[in-house]
Measured scan of single mutants.
Amino acid sequence: MADEEKLPPGWEKRMSRSSGRVYYFNHITNASQWERPSGN
């Protein structure tokens, strides 16, 4: 997916099972956040 290609290394887009909202998860640091991480 083009959107995921633009995410910084380690980040992936996921869907919250409880709320149905999109969030972002970093599998390197195990961090998660609602806001899209910047690629800069």
Rank of each mutant, 00 (worst) to 15 (best):
16 S>M: 07
40 N>R: 08
36 R>K: 14
11 W>Q: 01
15 M>L: 13
19 S>W: 05
36 R>Q: 09
8 P>A: 04
16 S>C: 12
23 Y>N: 00
3 D>T: 15
22 V>Q: 10
23 Y>G: 03
37 P>D: 01
34 W>R: 11
16 S>P: 03
5 E>M: 09
17 R>M: 07
3 D>G: 10
29 T>Y: 07
5 E>K: 10
39 G>F: 03
38 S>L: 13
35 E>I: 07
15 M>Y: 14
39 G>P: 11
19 S>A: 11
8 P>D: 02
38 S>G: 13
40 N>H: 13
11 W>R: 00
35 E>R: 05
20 G>R: 07
38 S>K: 11
4 E>Y: 08
7 L>K: 00
24 Y>A: 01
6 K>Y: 08
37 P>G: 01
26 N>H: 05
39 G>D: 12
2 A>C: 11
26 N>Q: 02
14 R>V: 04
1 M>F: 15
30 N>P: 01
16 S>Q: 13
23 Y>K: 07
7 L>W: 00
34 W>Q: 12
34 W>N: 15
18 S>C: 06
36 R>S: 11
27 H>R: 15
36 R>D: 06
36 R>T: 11
4 E>Q: 12
13 K>V: 11
9 P>K: 09
26 N>K: 01
7 L>H: 01
7 L>F: 11
18 S>A: 04
32 S>Q: 14
21 R>C: 12
11 W>M: 00
33 Q>N: 02
11 W>T: 01
13 K>A: 10
32 S>A: 12
24 Y>G: 01
13 K>E: 12
32 S>P: 03
27 H>L: 11
19 S>F: 05
35 E>G: 06
3 D>E: 13
23 Y>W: 06
37 P>L: 00
18 S>K: 03
33 Q>L: 02
32 S>M: 13
2 A>S: 12
31 A>W: 09
35 E>A: 09
6 K>R: 10
8 P>I: 04
9 P>T: 10
31 A>R: 11
24 Y>C: 01
33 Q>E: 03
5 E>W: 07
14 R>Y: 04
4 E>D: 08
36 R>V: 11
30 N>W: 01
4 E>K: 14
18 S>L: 08
26 N>T: 00
14 R>P: 00
16 S>A: 08
7 L>A: 03
34 W>I: 09
9 P>W: 02
29 T>A: 05
33 Q>K: 04
6 K>E: 10
14 R>W: 00
15 M>R: 11
23 Y>V: 05
19 S>K: 09
13 K>S: 08
3 D>N: 09
2 A>Q: 10
10 G>R: 03
6 K>T: 12
36 R>M: 10
28 I>S: 14
34 W>M: 08
37 P>I: 00
7 L>G: 00
27 H>D: 03
21 R>A: 12
35 E>V: 08
11 W>I: 00
10 G>S: 07
1 M>E: 09
32 S>F: 06
9 P>N: 07
15 M>Q: 12
39 G>M: 14
18 S>V: 10
24 Y>Q: 02
8 P>H: 01
10 G>W: 06
17 R>Q: 10
2 A>R: 10
32 S>C: 14
17 R>S: 14
34 W>V: 13
6 K>P: 08
3 D>H: 11
28 I>R: 13
27 H>P: 14
27 H>E: 11
18 S>D: 15
10 G>E: 06
22 V>P: 09
1 M>R: 07
32 S>D: 02
25 F>Q: 06
31 A>S: 13
19 S>L: 08
34 W>D: 14
11 W>S: 01
18 S>F: 07
7 L>S: 01
20 G>C: 05
4 E>C: 15
16 S>F: 08
21 R>F: 04
36 R>C: 14
27 H>G: 10
22 V>T: 12
11 W>E: 03
19 S>M: 09
13 K>T: 13
19 S>H: 06
1 M>I: 12
34 W>H: 08
24 Y>H: 00
15 M>D: 07
6 K>S: 10
12 E>Y: 03
5 E>T: 10
13 K>D: 02
32 S>W: 14
38 S>H: 03
6 K>Q: 09
12 E>N: 04
25 F>T: 04
2 A>D: 07
9 P>Y: 04
10 G>Q: 11
14 R>S: 03
1 M>L: 07
31 A>D: 04
39 G>S: 12
37 P>K: 00
3 D>L: 13
12 E>P: 00
22 V>D: 02
24 Y>F: 09
9 P>R: 06
26 N>E: 01
38 S>R: 13
4 E>A: 06
6 K>L: 09
19 S>Q: 13
14 R>I: 01
8 P>N: 02
15 M>A: 08
30 N>T: 04
35 E>N: 06
8 P>S: 02
2 A>L: 10
26 N>A: 00
3 D>A: 13
13 K>C: 06
20 G>P: 05
2 A>W: 06
30 N>A: 07
35 E>D: 14
36 R>P: 13
33 Q>C: 15
4 E>S: 08
8 P>G: 05
14 R>N: 03
34 W>P: 10
26 N>V: 00
29 T>I: 04
12 E>V: 07
16 S>R: 03
38 S>D: 04
24 Y>V: 00
4 E>I: 09
35 E>W: 06
35 E>P: 04
6 K>D: 08
38 S>P: 03
33 Q>T: 15
21 R>P: 05
22 V>G: 07
15 M>K: 10
9 P>V: 05
34 W>S: 12
19 S>T: 12
12 E>R: 03
2 A>Y: 04
27 H>I: 11
5 E>V: 08
11 W>P: 01
7 L>T: 00
12 E>D: 05
12 E>L: 06
34 W>E: 14
16 S>L: 07
5 E>P: 10
36 R>I: 07
13 K>G: 03
5 E>D: 10
34 W>F: 13
10 G>T: 02
23 Y>C: 04
30 N>R: 11
2 A>H: 04
16 S>G: 05
37 P>S: 00
31 A>K: 12
22 V>R: 04
39 G>V: 11
39 G>Q: 07
27 H>V: 14
4 E>R: 10
33 Q>V: 06
15 M>S: 06
31 A>L: 14
9 P>G: 08
28 I>D: 09
6 K>H: 10
30 N>E: 15
8 P>E: 05
14 R>H: 00
38 S>T: 15
16 S>T: 14
31 A>E: 15
13 K>Q: 15
7 L>E: 00
11 W>A: 01
19 S>D: 08
31 A>M: 12
28 I>Q: 15
9 P>E: 12
7 L>C: 02
31 A>P: 00
30 N>G: 12
32 S>G: 06
5 E>S: 13
7 L>M: 07
4 E>T: 09
11 W>K: 01
8 P>K: 03
25 F>M: 02
11 W>L: 02
8 P>T: 00
13 K>I: 09
16 S>V: 10
14 R>M: 06
4 E>G: 08
21 R>V: 08
24 Y>L: 00
22 V>S: 07
24 Y>P: 01
26 N>D: 04
32 S>R: 14
7 L>V: 03
2 A>K: 12
19 S>R: 07
33 Q>R: 05
30 N>S: 11
14 R>L: 04
18 S>T: 13
35 E>C: 07
35 E>H: 12
24 Y>M: 00
6 K>M: 11
20 G>T: 03
18 S>H: 04
31 A>C: 12
25 F>L: 05
36 R>H: 12
15 M>F: 11
33 Q>Y: 08
30 N>Y: 05
3 D>S: 14
5 E>C: 09
13 K>R: 11
40 N>G: 11
2 A>E: 09
11 W>C: 02
2 A>T: 14
21 R>M: 05
28 I>P: 05
10 G>D: 06
36 R>E: 10
27 H>M: 13
2 A>G: 11
7 L>Q: 02
11 W>V: 02
10 G>V: 02
36 R>A: 13
19 S>P: 04
